[in-house]
């Protein structure tokens, strides 16, 4: 844990792997999209509309997966008080919100032609909407405090409270009568999708996962650089204040 938690080492390792992850994301997305749009067959019931699945289902998985990461990073931040964990949690949230939004909108676009409605308040759809608002609430809460440490702590507690929503989303289709159908891939007895549709789905899911890790690294690095910038500027301002007080001129040449 502590081996990776050192920001300097994190910056060095992440800089080395970042380009490779970026290109891997692009490659997997291209392969996944070709499989989803050209290779996968139409469904016997849903026809070509089934192609929405290759976006909707991976986005839904990512919504859950990112939330699990957000909660884990929040827990690590709360327990070990490590700034890198706090940054990681905060930078995961916008990505999770984006995947959840994609899941909700594509689900709506799929529901209208197949079910006959854009939206219903069944347990599955409602619990996913709750997760979307958890992401938004987390982002708002973190930024609601003047003191960033307190904001991070309050956000972490909200993130961990929201964990109870994960099993509710996953099992909502088994516990209650829902309009949404039960799981097709992660279920007892194996997937109920033929291989020619399962394969594009899995490639898209891996592509989305790598996309998430790539953007997460970019955002964490960006946040660390931003913190460094802030402390540099603060240090510069301190110099000014000291030199002003002593009536001298600053040693470095600052642009006014």
């Amino acid at each position: 844990m502590n081996r990776f938690a050192n920001p300097t080492r994190f910056m060095r390792i992440s800089a080395a792997v970042l380009p490779a992850i970026g290109w891997l994301t692009a490659l997997l997305l291209v392969v996944g999209l070709v499989l989803a749009l050209f290779v996968a067959p139409p469904d016997y019931q849903q026809g070509e509309s089934v192609r929405i699945m290759f976006i909707h289902v991976p986005a839904a998985w990512m919504a859950l997966f990112v939330y699990a990461n957000l909660a884990l990073a929040s827990a690590a931040g709360l327990i070990w008080r490590h700034p890198l964990a706090e940054i990681a949690a905060q930078e995961a949230a916008p990505l999770g919100a984006a995947f959840t939004l994609v899941c909700l909108v594509t689900g709506s676009l799929w529901g209208q032609p197949m079910w006959g409605t854009w939206w219903v308040w069944d347990a599955r759809l409602t619990s996913v909407l709750v997760m979307f608002f958890l992401y938004l609430g987390y982002i708002a809460l973190v930024h609601a405090f003047d003191d960033p440490t307190r904001g991070a702590r309050a956000g972490a507690i909200l993130a961990m409270v929201g964990v109870v929503n994960l099993p509710i989303i996953k099992f909502s289709v088994d516990w209650w009568n829902t309009l949404h159908q039960p799981a097709s891939v992660f279920r007892l007895g194996g997937p109920t999708i033929v291989l020619s549709m399962l394969l594009p789905l899995l490639v898209m899911a891996i592509a989305f996962t790598i996309l998430f890790f790539w953007l997460w690294l970019v955002r964490i690095r960006s946040a660390i650089v931003a913190r460094k910038l802030r402390s540099l500027r603060l240090a510069g301002a301190d110099d000014f204040a000291q030199l002003d007080a002593s009536g001298g001129k600053p040693a470095g040449s600052y642009p006014s």
């Binding site: 026809g47 929405i52 984006a98 676009l109």
Partner: peptide
């Protein structure tokens, strides 16, 4: 035409591109 579902399939892919692509662009 996507078997008559063009009005649903293509917007779904477009939304994914705009939201995820926008997120990538903003982050970078």
């Amino acid at each position: 035409a996507m078997g008559g579902y063009a009005a649903f399939v293509w917007p779904a892919y477009a939304v994914a591109l705009i939201v995820l692509g926008g997120m990538a662009l903003q982050s970078l």
